[in-house]
Structures are given as structure tokens and as C-alpha cells.
Amino acid sequence: MKWRVTVTVRLKEGLNDPEGRVIGKALRNLGYAVEGLRVPKCFEFELESENPEEEVEEICRKLLANPLIHSWEYRIEPVS
């Protein structure tokens, strides 16, 4: 069966995000009261699989995230 997968990978809380800090500061310079901006990464793909949950978990652990510094979540929907 074919699935549409969306994975979001985030830096664990407490780890600083230099890119987020710089973008947040640029937004403040534009006059917006932005705080705590972080930059997660989002991946979208289609997956042919009989155990999508298990495989997506593996995909995150093996490549998309670094378990030492990242947490992740995903959404899996059937392709109609």
C-alpha cells in the first residue's frame, strides 16, 4: 500500500538553534514581537510499505534525524 508521509525533525529542547536565533532577530528588526523562533525541518514523501509506522520510525532514526540532538514526529496518510 502507498502512503503519503510528512516528517518533522526538531532540535531537542535546550539545544540552541543559531539559525532560528538569527531569523528571529531579523523579524524583530522588522518590528514584530517574535520570540523563541526555532527552525524545524520538514520532509514530505510517498512510501510503499506494509508497515509504514515502523519504516518511518526507522527512516527517522537512521537518517532524517540524529537521535542525540533531535526529536521527530510524523503523519502518515493513505494515498487515495
Binding site: 539545544l15 543559531p18 539559525e19 540524529n66 542525540l68
Partner: peptide, 16 residues
């Protein structure tokens, strides 16, 4: 580090 041959991770520099 990414291959797991050394521990830890190399993250973006603190300075941008």
C-alpha cells in the same frame, strides 16, 4: 560522528 564511529555530533557554530 554521523557514521557512529565517534560519539557526539557537530552542530552549526554558535556564531552565525
Amino acid at each position: 560522528t554521523e557514521a557512529g564511529l565517534l560519539p557526539g555530533a557537530l552542530r552549526p557554530n554558535r556564531v552565525p
